[in-house]
Design a protein around this nucleic acid. Sequence first.
DNA 1: GGCTCCAATGAAAACGTCACCATTATATCA
DNA 2: TGATATAATGGTGACGTTTTCATTGGAGCC
Lengths: 340, 340
Amino acid sequence: MRRRPTIRDVASASGVSMGTVSRVAAKSSVVSPETRHRVEQAMRTLGYVPNIAARTMRTNRTKIVGLLLPDLANTVFLLLAKAAERLLGAEGYTLFLYSSERSPTREIEFLELASRYRMDGLIVSLSDETNQSVVEALSKMECPIVLLDRDTPIRADVVFSEHAEAMQRVTAHLIELGHRRIALITAPLGIRPGRERVLGYRAALRDAGLGVDEALIGHDYQTSKYGFSKALEMLRRPVPPTAVIAGGDEIFYGVLRATRQLNLAIPGDVSIVGADNRMLSDVVTPMITIIDRDMEQVGDTAADMLIRRMNGEGGEPVHVHLPSEVILRSSTAKPRPDVV
Amino acid sequence: MRRRPTIRDVASASGVSMGTVSRVAAKSSVVSPETRHRVEQAMRTLGYVPNIAARTMRTNRTKIVGLLLPDLANTVFLLLAKAAERLLGAEGYTLFLYSSERSPTREIEFLELASRYRMDGLIVSLSDETNQSVVEALSKMECPIVLLDRDTPIRADVVFSEHAEAMQRVTAHLIELGHRRIALITAPLGIRPGRERVLGYRAALRDAGLGVDEALIGHDYQTSKYGFSKALEMLRRPVPPTAVIAGGDEIFYGVLRATRQLNLAIPGDVSIVGADNRMLSDVVTPMITIIDRDMEQVGDTAADMLIRRMNGEGGEPVHVHLPSEVILRSSTAKPRPDVV
DNA sequence: GGCTCCAATGAAAACGTCACCATTATATCA
DNA sequence: TGATATAATGGTGACGTTTTCATTGGAGCC
């Protein structure tokens, strides 16, 4: 296997110095048109490809941005990733995608990777903001970081999504339809979305003067399996809920499977509210009422904030809050008069 | 911002030479237990993190493997990626995930990236094996490559999935149930799975002595939108098909949406066969008959082949063929007697 | 014509690591 | 005891790039 041509080979082939070749390769400073043309010619014939590792050594910049997500199977995160990649790519950054599979161990592995490869910046969605060692590892990072929707003591920019208010609205809507036993299954309280959703849910019940049945709230795991078993358990109670709100993608899957297992009609037997996954909500019969947010906007915002920081912009950490939307569709309706 | 500690700082802090520190960092050769301990101590107090770029310069290995996929939203590819990552990670490789979004331009961008970063190996799933410039760029790469399920003139290892036979079996099954107008919507003929599926489909019809109605075969795009519009068009014909086979994940989504739009009962009005997406097939009512393959096995196989090549194993390109499975469930049944 | 100024290019050092070779200390054996 | 093998460590150059500083040649000006 022959050696890859270097800037030196290109230099001697085109009769200029290495400095000039570098200037052509980086498209940076002034090179006369004739020289530029001659050098580019030589690059093409030799098949020269710049060596990023060497460039990194010299410049201390990798032009790599790491994106840590809890889960790649989740459509919302992919939308976010795509949006962020678009903006970062325009600035010459390459996006390195990593899924923690909701494992703190893997989150730390990612940070280790980011350190070793000297990534220029990170966008991070944690699976558990209460995990001490992850938070500590994160705060020790030397590059700019943008956090996604988490409350931590880390001094970093954060993009928040609004959850409580949307949850309150959709719960109020169910109450207005006549529902009195509304179940909520959502993410653990160890992450902000879980907490906020429960807050909004409780607020709606309180506003309506209704008590909260703690047995109708589940927030243990953010998995399809948990959504399934918890929904099954609730819907099998002697006096089952007439509506189930699923907070988060995986749980939504699980809840749907449970209603099917029990052969329940939606919304005849039970009203269902999902979250985020427009694709699934569109294909399931009937169309599902969902709490939706613009994940592209989240990705754009995060990328934009990160780019500023990587360009050396200083100042206090910035917190941005983005809205959620309730999209009412046919999976939510009045409960059967006999079951209320 | 202070300078990151280097191997030199660790050396002087622990009173040994840089060479020894390097030996400790790389866990490679012999270092006495006491020295190792002292060096590791110094690394921890200084917060030393090895610089991969510098290592790469020296060793000519990045320990990065690129994985090019047409689409990250597709569950099957994620299973594959996860499996490959597990095996490669055990060998110290980091997986760099890239989605081409089925765009040849992005595929070339990926190869460019792989060249510049000097990735050690690639696993590649092309979106169109007939695209000349992509094939050319691919054949110019200097690192080992494993191709996924594509026929190209490139001298590289390939992991094939079996499609024709499974398609033939499931088509035969529908015929046996009494179906005579069976539609097939699948990937373009520009990629192997599309071609193979059409072959298997035709073979089953031929074996049963049935003619092929070309209007019931669609293979133009591998998108949900295409699946939707094509299924809609077919199912609205004066004499519609009694069964629809969807080859590929996105198309499957589209077909499902079409049946819902037309308010068709599955399998009452039309039998449906899906492919690959177990998650969706599980959540939709009724459970969908699918053609399934073990994508973890595909990922494992590809990673294993690549690791061998990266370790310098020579020899002719290896082609592996892996089976597909037909899982019969309740979305396929006898057609209504009156419509046959 | 002599001066300054600027554009274009060249020369060389430095980034952090590893691998080779050299050196030293220690163990082994005849 | 002396010779030799072995284990552990030190010293140093090179990987390919960018960037600073220096140099050159020519244009513009008085």
